[in-house]
């Protein structure tokens, strides 16, 4: 089962600042929905744990997250490989950054591929849940990068 996703958003931060945030695993990973913990393996890779919940099927997924591409200040791309409850998933998430109106246009895209028991048991539920979680991730990134009036940008 493959889920493709893409979109874009604008923020007022500079492209360099935005890149610095998105290419920093320690800042990016906590924005993942249901984030639990992060353990850096080296500069580019980390073990991230997140909660997974699809209906009554619940567990902790372990993801090996790797910063595959880091082209300052225009592009950052992560790949992830995870497993949970006899299932596996592969994740790609990329960010292309363009300067716009003194801020940054963030074009995001990615692919989530899932395999195994979860797909079999909850196949019909995965797509809507994944789409919701991707929206939560993007919302969290936007909020961290551009919190709006009264807020404080992360990083």
């Amino acid at each position: 089962m493959a889920i493709l996703f893409e979109g874009e958003f604008e923020i007022t931060r500079s492209r360099e600042e935005t890149f610095a945030f998105l290419a920093d695993t320690q800042k990016f990973a906590p924005c993942l929905p249901t984030f639990e913990s992060l353990e850096m393996e080296d500069d580019e890779s980390a073990t991230v744990k997140i909660k997974i919940g699809i209906g009554k099927i619940r567990g902790i997924a372990t993801i090996n997250l790797v910063l595959e591409e880091s082209e300052s200040p225009t592009r950052a791309r992560y790949s992830g490989k995870g497993s949970v409850m006899g299932s596996a998933f592969n994740l790609i998430a990329g960010f292309d950054l363009e300067e716009i109106n003194g801020g940054t246009l963030v074009k995001w895209s990615g692919e989530l591929k899932m395999f195994g028991k979860l797909v079999a048991l909850a196949g019909g539920l995965i797509k809507p849940i994944a789409k919701k979680d991707i929206k939560r991730l993007i919302d969290a990134l936007q909020k961290a990068l551009d919190p709006g009036p009264g807020g404080q940008a992360a990083g």
């Binding site: 591929k113 395999f115 079999a120 048991l121």
Partner: peptide, 13 residues
């Protein structure tokens, strides 16, 4: 599916 996931592996499906 195209990646070899069996989509009907319980009595629900």
């Amino acid at each position: 599916d195209e990646t070899g996931n069996l989509l009907t592996s319980s009595f629900s499906d």
